[in-house]
Design a protein around this nucleic acid. Structure first.
Length: 615
RNA sequence: GCCCAUGUAGCUCAGUCGGCAGAGCACUUCCUUGGUAAGGAAGAGGUCACCGGUUCGAUUCCGGUCAUGGGCUCCA
């Protein structure tokens, strides 16, 4: 009996480890091992969503017979299908398509698999004018291809599929977007419809609620509401203006960062925003990174470049005097502002910009010191990230890309050094082949925010190449010159991007130590102006970011205003407080605490700020 | 860069089938001195993103530019 229930829920079967339709069981070798595919498994969801994608294609075919079909796979959170149609789809079309899909699901037609020799399939689809399918078939190496038919709609597909359309219980079409055929901008732009599907209406609702939560936390929206930053048409796309509220948060982050770097035995540097083009030619950036660099500018007939990276400056400082092996590892850190060309279409709030400040550092060391340095950096990174409330990570090791400088041997050594450090430290990590930077392999740490979304921030890169190019040396114990290794690393990545992630992570409700305004003093009536002014001064004097509201408004109004600004503590001053020489405090969540004396409360707050509590 | 959508007051948005534009909030002033998320009244505020075209007349229609948004790496 239990088996029957499972079979009814299962989306497909796995025969000898291969995913198949239920249909395939009819002609199965009795010796085979058969497993049911659990709907909650990754593959189960994929099959379910893929079938939903087919149902969408079918609906589109019925509604818009002139459409040509490209591809329609399942993706992480749903599915899409790419169509070629002269007219653009509208949001109203999506509603029509959804309606039609519901009809098709109700018809509960079976998905029927047919295997066909390639030549026949080619014939079939070229007659139907399905150019994209023809191209797809031509690229399939096998001799036979499979088709799936459901209610008169046939599509090229590897499968497997659900047994019937009626198995789809909850789906939603989400958006329309342009997408190049095969992701290549040289190809025609198709219309992509995104959707998602779940096994139950509850799961679908939970997902749609999640999307709503993401919208609510959008850093661009909160950035405006909380007056943190802006972009201006007059300044230029991808260039951030930090408003006072954002700037004070940045300053707090920077202070913390500098203190911790000094404590970790880094030296702080500052370097200019431009340098001679020659420098970038020598570093290799001009050859390997030019597509991200701006056009040179001419100063006194010499070409200069706005910097896309800080490394050559740090190397120059390193080289400004003789270095002994005794000085290594030498750790140079800078909050260095760089400018990189990003295509206009990829710019996105604070998360993808053209000018940003890296929390950069370059460590010059001997080869035998790499592993130890990388281990220290990993610890340091996790400590910094934890302070901002990020405790979950995915770690990646990125290897040599297609465009690279340096010898294969050096790449090998550098990659091994990173690998060994990771293995010694012990966290699970994944390999990202070909995703390294042109000058060396790297470890990337992707942090997970409260909504469990992954963001890449931290990066650790080993570099044998720049020291070579700049003929960087240190004097060894043997009295000879040796080549140091350089490690590039950033913990937060860029302050702009990290700030954007922080805003979304905290939904704008920053912990006290980061809050732009930490305390708001609110009076009941103007009778308390004098007493409230003294309180305000005392907080300010204690270094607490405090504002006072003496407006001619009722207390309810003042509380609302401060609450919308997400001020952590509201100090309420009325006749009672003035008479007793105390204060009453309302927390951001509406809870009232106190009464306290001003000194008592300052001590409480100072403690919370100092510990950088994340609550 | 490309496809689609959007651009109206500081913010959120309505509106004009072509006849020189509106709301709420915010802002200013006045009244109110009120104890935990919006007290009342009045006022000020816009080259309807920008440039050009069509028209007697354009914020509205057409073209271009700029900016913003959703995407363009998930491979039948």
């Amino acid at each position: 009996m239990k088996k029957h229930i499972e079979a009814a829920k299962a989306v497909a079967v796995k025969v000898n480890g291969e995913f198949k339709d239920f249909q395939s069981l009819e002609s199965i070798d009795p010796q085979s091992t058969v497993e049911l595919v659990n709907p909650e498994s990754k593959e189960g969801k994929e099959i379910y969503r893929h079938s939903t994608s087919h149902i969408m294609a079918h609906a589109v075919k019925e509604l818009f017979p002139d459409v040509k079909f490209a591809i329609g796979p399942a993706i992480d959170e749903g599915f899409y299908y790419d169509f070629d149609r002269a007219e653009p789809f509208t949001p109203e079309d999506l509603e029509k398509i959804e309606k039609k899909m519901k009809e098709i699901i109700k018809r509960n037609n079976p998905f029927v698999r047919k295997a066909l020799p390639k030549s026949e399939a080619l014939d079939l689809f070229s007659k139907a004018g399905e150019d994209y399918k023809v191209q797809l078939i031509q690229d399939i190496p096998d001799e036979t291809v499979s088709l799936y038919e459901e209610g008169g709609f046939t599509d090229l597909c590897r499968g497997p599929h659900l047994s019937r359309t009626g198995k789809v219980k909850a789906f939603k079409l989400l958006s329309i977007a342009g997408a190049y055929w095969r992701g290549d901008e040289k190809n025609k732009m198709l219309q992509r419809i995104y959707g998602t599907a779940f096994f139950t209406k509850e799961d679908l609702k939970a997902y749609l609620d999640f999307l709503e939560e993401v919208r609510k936390r959008d850093h661009r929206k909160l950035g405006k509401e909380l007056d943190l930053f802006s972009l201006s048409e007059d300044i230029g796309p991808g260039l951030i203006l930090w408003h006072p509220n954002g700037a004070i948060i940045r300053k707090t982050i920077e202070d913390f960062w500098r203190e911790e770097h000094l404590a970790a035995d880094y030296k702080l540097l500052f370097s200019p925003h431009i340098a001679k083009l020659n420098l970038w030619q020598r570093s290799g950036h001009w050859d390997f990174y030019r597509e991200n660099m701006y056009s040179p500018m001419e100063i006194d007939e010499v070409a200069y470049e706005v910097k896309p990276m800080n490394c050559p400056f740090h190397i120059d400082i390193y080289k400004s005097s003789m270095r002994s092996y005794r000085e290594l590892p030498l750790r140079y850190a800078e909050l260095g502002t760089v400018y990189r060309y990003e295509r206009s279409g990829v710019l996105h709030g604070l998360l993808r910009v053209r000018g940003f400040t890296q929390d950069d550092a370059h460590i010059f060391c001997r080869e035998d010191q790499i592993e130890g340095e990388v281990l220290d950096i990993l610890d340091f990174t996790l400590f910094i990230l934890k302070t901002f409330g990020f405790e979950n990570y995915d770690i990646y090791l990125s290897t040599r890309p297609e465009k690279y400088v340096g010898t294969l041997e050096n790449w090998e050594r550098a990659t091994n050094a990173l690998k060994q450090a990771l293995e010694k430290k012990g966290p699970a990590y994944m390999v990202d082949p070909g995703e390294g930077v042109f000058y060396g392999p790297k470890i990337d740490i992707k942090i997970k925010d409260v909504l469990n979304r992954a963001w890449q921030c931290s990066t650790i890169q080993v570099d044998f190449n720049l020291p070579e190019r700049f003929d960087t040396v240190y004097r060894g114990s043997d009295g000879k010159d040796h080549r140091p290794i350089m490690i590039h690393r950033a913990l937060m990545g860029s302050l702009e991007r990290f700030f954007g992630i922080l805003i979304e992570h905290y939904a704008g409700i920053f912990p006290l130590w980061l809050s732009p305004v930490q305390v708001a003093v609110l009076t009941i009536s103007e009778k308390q102006d004098g007493y409230a002014g003294e309180i305000f001064k005392a907080f300010r004097k204690a270094g607490i970011r405090t504002e006072i509201n003496l407006e001619n408004e009722k207390i309810g109004y003042k509380i609302r205003e401060a609450t919308l600004k997400k001020v952590p503590y509201l100090v309420i001053i009325g006749d009672k407080e003035a008479a007793e020489g105390k204060i009453t405090v309302r927390k951001r969540n509406g809870e009232n605490i106190g009464p306290f004396t001003t000194d008592e409360f300052i001590r409480i707050i100072e403690e919370e700020i100092q510990t950088k509590s994340n609550k």
